[in-house]
């Protein structure tokens, strides 16, 4: 690079000697014009940028940012409203579920109590009937036992008479039967 640079600098030596400088960027004769135009045009650029273009773009960006912020805020408001609605809905649902639960419990308790009362009633009735039946059985049994004793006395008397030919006294037989029955 440096070589080609030097070479080319050498090759333009001829016009350089005429104008007093060789390499164009170092030719001081052109500096005044370049600086003048640079100053004029750069000042124009600076003024137009700082007065018009940059404030305009700044305001465009600011307006867009505000618009987006407003939209986001609105979206947030809608979201909050929908959240509140969902919360209310869930509370109502929970309430209803709780009420249904309470109602079911109450009904179940009532039904259980009714069933219990009815069972007790039936139990008592059954108990009474069992007691009556037992009493009847006891009466029947004692009468049957009394009959049994009479039959046993007669039978014993008949057996003794048949075996011995002697008719025993009914009191004796009665005593003997009573003694056996007691055993």
């Amino acid at each position: 690079m440096a070589q080609s640079n030097a070479e080319s600098a050498g090759s333009v030596e001829v016009p350089a000697s005429e104008h007093g400088a060789g390499f164009p960027p170092f030719n001081s004769h052109t500096f005044a014009s370049q600086l003048l135009w640079l100053a004029l045009l750069f000042v124009a650029l600076y003024v137009l940028m700082s007065r018009v273009a940059l404030p305009r773009i700044g305001s465009i960006l600011e307006a867009r940012r505000r618009h987006i912020d407003a939209d986001l805020a609105e979206a947030q408001r809608f979201k909050d409203a929908s959240d509140a609605a969902i919360a209310a809905h869930e509370t109502a649902l929970a309430d209803a579920r709780g009420r249904a639960q309470a109602l079911a419990n109450e009904t179940r308790a009532k039904a259980a109590a009714a069933a219990d009362a009815r069972r007790k009633q039936v139990d008592a009735k059954l108990h009474d009937r069992i007691r009556e039946a037992e009493k009847a059985i006891a009466v029947t049994r004692s009468s049957a036992m009394a009959n049994l004793r009479g039959m046993a006395v007669e039978a014993a008397g008949a057996i003794v008479e048949r075996l011995t030919g002697v008719t025993p006294a009914s009191e004796e037989v009665g005593q003997a039967v009573t003694k056996v029955l007691k055993r």
Partner: peptide, 9 residues
């Protein structure tokens, strides 16, 4: 000093 409208300008 020469002032001119140049290709640079």
């Amino acid at each position: 000093i020469e002032i001119a409208f140049t290709n640079s300008a």
